[in-house]
Nucleic acid binder design. Structure first.
Lengths: 192, 192
DNA sequence: ACTGTAGCGGAGGTACCCCTCCGGTTCAAT
DNA sequence: ATTGAACCGGAGGGGTACCTCCGCTACAGT
């Protein structure tokens, strides 16, 4: 009833350094990377990221030997947050819980599509994140389907792609994005 | 009843050269650019494009002094094709005509999002293309709305963004993409 | 306070890309 | 066939990004 109804695992055992200065640099790098990827997409300059973090390029490479390492860490971080959010929504109305979570999902994904794009399908961590996310959010859809609030002829993957695709698009303003999202979600209720 | 029910304008007076060899190079460059943009996104290497076209880099720059020139020409080309398609669908059933056109739209746009992205909002030609596209496709939606096949509380812009967003996403396979698109389109019928 | 070591920054080699410029080539009009 | 204008390719200068390497710094454990 209370607490977390389904397990929320931390996906990556992040290699955060022990020493104080090192840990500070590590965090600064992650923040800078998040920002840079959101702004410039998957091929943001690593040197620029180091610059933003106020850190030498060597430090970046020591913490994340590969561009992919950086991607994975940033991405896994986001997914962890999302999984926690799903747990907190478990006691709301089925349809409301689902849409509220999708809202969060959209918020995190708008700026993160670059990261997902770069990792899609080719990474072990990505696979783990995916499973984690499905485990966390999937029940929200199933519950809505059981109560008849959502059509039964679709799965959680369909839903996520739909929302991800729509939210990743450039709209005139947030009102239009929400309008379009609402229309598409009407399709999710419509089937039955 | 016959021919084109609404005007289909050629948007850019393309500066295709007169001389035979020059014209051949021009075409090769456009093809290579289309391909490269689809593959590598907006910042594909111009030198690579010239290489693909089997042409010196100088020739590329003579024909398209600016990366934007190349973008605009490629993009305008696509839009022209799409406008012609709309004209040809005018005598089908309203809903069927609309979805058939959106199908074409999706096909052209999946690989072209890079071009749209790079041009979005900042280009005069883009504005013209947009208008052309709306003039060509908009009536298909309005017709469907008049007959009650589509909900009235949305406009053509909403619909295009929705379809563009969904089709630009990576799916497991085409079946999933079509399934998700169908669900969203159910939302377009649902409102009323 | 001392000290060994984990961690730091950034110079610099390599690679690629952008774009200009010009000697040579090819077309088409006579 | 001739010829001059239009067009060609690619060398090369300038810039930026990637990534390695190493002399120096500052932390943490005693």
């Amino acid at each position: 009833m209370t607490a977390t109804p389904f397990p929320v695992s931390e996906i990556v055992a992040t290699r955060r350094p022990h020493r104080k200065d090192a840990a500070r640099n590590y965090d600064a790098l992650l923040d800078a990377a998040r920002e840079a990827f959101a702004e410039h997409g998957a091929e943001a300059s690593l040197e620029d990221i180091a610059r933003r973090a106020g850190v030498g390029i060597g430090t970046l490479y020591r913490n994340f030997p590969t561009r992919r390492d950086l991607f994975e860490t940033v991405y896994a971080d986001e997914v962890n947050t999302l999984c926690r959010a799903a747990a907190e929504l478990a006691d709301r109305e089925p349809w409301e819980a689902l849409t509220a979570w999708l809202d969060r999902f959209a918020g995190y994904m708008v700026t993160k599509r670059a990261v997902r794009e770069a990792l899609d399908g080719e990474s072990g961590i990505f696979q783990a994140c995916r499973e984690s996310m499905y485990a966390a959010g999937g029940p929200l859809l199933e519950r809505a389907q059981r109560t008849g609030a959502a059509r039964a002829d679709m799965d959680f993957g369909d839903l996520l792609r739909m929302v991800a695709g729509i939210t990743a698009t450039v709209f005139d303003d947030d009102a239009q994005r929400n309008r379009v999202l609402a229309i598409a979600l009407d399709g999710v209720r419509a089937g039955r």
